[in-house]
């Protein structure tokens, strides 16, 4: 991995839902450089979930290359893709991000269970989780609480801490702000970008809200990079 290598590089990716010839997604070329932040704009139903699942390796393309940190996700087995995701990608969802029954600290440390290298990078996982929480504006006494006891805004910050623990080079966020009000949205993005800058990770965030665009290095319309075909039968 040289400094100029992209953190995500998709080429000629073709995906078809198994057994449904009417639905396909093609990504001719899409790159994300190291440390780059990109906002991907797309309405729901435009294939963004499929695109994210391809990048994260829970779906496998029919052909093409999905390079994540120098490893072709598309060439790996199911278990290999799960491992690559665990090691290299931090994921934040729209909502229902956390395990409600688990403590905040267990939620944050969860990805390390499946990623030995990332776990080794974290050195002292609990200390790192604590400092991440502090810089995200979460007080220490929240760490031992159950995730379900937190407010939505707090939960999303915990989700950021979880995505960033062990310093993965790529962070994927799927509408993380859609369940927050405008002021919480800004506060959330402030702390998220602050932490991203510290770690130097790349961010690919999906949203339908173009107003967020000014914070990102690049804004991309999903329809520009991906051809999504859905013929009603």
């Amino acid at each position: 991995m040289s400094g100029s290598a992209p953190i995500l590089n998709m080429r000629d990716v073709q995906f078809q839902w198994p057994g449904r010839s009417s639905f396909s997604l093609n990504v001719p070329a899409f790159r994300l450089e190291e440390g780059e932040t990109v906002l991907l704009l797309g309405e729901s139903g435009s294939g963004k979930s499929t695109l994210l699942s391809l990048i994260c390796g829970t779906l496998k393309p029919a052909s093409g290359i999905i390079d994540v940190s120098g490893t072709d996700m598309a060439a790996l087995s199911g278990a290999g893709r799960d491992r690559l995701r665990a090691e290299q990608i931090g994921v934040i969802f729209q909502q229902f991000n956390l395990l409600p029954f688990a403590t905040v600290s267990d939620n944050i440390l969860l990805p390390l269970c499946y990623a030995p290298n990332r776990s080794a990078r974290a050195k002292k996982p609990l200390a790192e989780a604590t400092s991440l929480c502090r810089s995200l504006g979460l007080s220490d006494d929240l760490l031992g609480q159950r995730a379900s006891a937190l407010s939505v805004g707090q939960q999303q910050r915990v989700a950021v801490a979880r995505a960033l623990i062990g310093q993965p080079p790529l962070m994927i966020a799927d509408e993380p702000t859609s369940s927050l009000d405008a002021s919480s949205q800004n506060a959330f993005l402030d702390v998220m970008f602050g932490q991203l800058g510290e770690i130097g990770a790349s961010l690919l965030m999906v949203s339908h809200d173009p107003r967020l665009g000014k914070r990102f290095d690049r804004v991309v319309e999903l329809s520009d990079i991906a051809k999504f075909e859905s013929h009603a039968a």
Partner: peptide
């Protein structure tokens, strides 16, 4: 959630 965090099926 487990899957997103890297858990295999």
């Amino acid at each position: 959630i487990f899957r997103a965090m890297g858990a295999r099926p």
